[in-house]
């Protein structure tokens, strides 16, 4: 089966984020970039399905030329080929990203698309849902287990919802978004990294896709969360209760 996965370039979750002084974005000068952690889980799931059923894993990244680094990492993990959609650095909202992916899916005709449930930078959690809608495909988001039956062309997906685990059956092709507990992504191996260089990587210019990606969302400003103010020390329980009442934590 042919599986399409995504690899968004996001800051390393362990890096310290600083804003640019003018608030136009984050200061990327000293930041390490990695594959979005949830996308990494999606890639791993794609590879496991390929190892089980055969076929091909295609990895897509949308952004500047720097995203080649993330595609190569995915190829080193075992994906077969990569597609970079070069945006020339322009801002895309979630609808724009989903439209581009829909366009790629039309060309590639995969049996399954697996994405991270959200990206760890903007945490939007929208692209997989919009993509399924644009394609008219069934969707199963927040997957923690995916079983595929090739004969009936169906996937049984366990989804992590607020009340517990929901089990859905979707017919293929479908869009699945990966949650944290779906799997533990592998490390790219040394031979894998060396082989990745030879694997095909196609760059597509965003203009050539002929998709309207003019954003409907405008980013006005980035702001750091307010600094935590120092607390105050109380003498005894009575004073504590008084203070809690004053700050309206206690309603009576």
């Amino acid at each position: 089966m042919k599986i399409l996965v995504t690899a968004k370039r996001t800051p390393d979750p362990y890096s310290k984020i600083k804003l640019k002084p003018d608030g136009s974005g984050i200061d990327t000068s000293n930041i390490k970039f990695v594959i979005n952690s949830f996308d990494e889980i999606a890639i791993e799931e794609g590879l496991r399905k390929k190892e089980k059923f055969g076929g091909e894993v295609v990895v897509v990244s949308i952004g500047t030329q720097e995203c080649v680094e993330q595609i190569r990492t995915a190829l080193a993990m075992g994906a077969d080929r990569g597609i970079l959609v070069d945006t020339g650095g322009r801002y895309l909202d979630q609808l724009g990203v989903a439209k581009i992916l829909a366009r790629i899916v039309e060309d590639e005709k995969p049996d399954l698309v697996i994405l991270g449930k959200q990206a760890i930078d903007d945490d939007a959690n929208q692209v997989s849902q919009i993509l399924a809608e644009l394609l008219g495909w069934p969707q199963a988001t927040f997957a923690s287990k995916v079983d595929i039956d090739l004969n009936s062309k169906k996937a049984v997906v366990e989804r992590e919802v607020d009340g517990g685990i929901e089990v859905d059956e979707v017919s293929l092709p479908a869009v699945i978004s990966a949650d944290l507990r779906l799997n533990q992504p592998r490390y790219a191996s040394l031979p894998g990294i060396m082989k990745a260089r030879q694997k095909p990587l196609k760059t597509v210019k965003i203009e050539d896709l002929k998709v309207d990606v003019s954003p409907s969302v405008e980013v006005l400003k980035f702001e750091a969360p307010p600094q935590r103010q120092g607390g105050k020390k109380v003498k005894d329980v009575d004073e504590l209760i008084q203070a809690l009442k004053e700050s309206k934590v206690l309603p009576f």
């Binding site: 390490k32 490390y187 040394l190 990294i193």
Partner: peptide, 19 residues
Amino acid sequence: SDEEKSLFSEFERLCREKI
């Protein structure tokens, strides 16, 4: 090279997380 850089960062992660 880019290949060596990704090799270093992947091995660093393996050592930090698994060893």
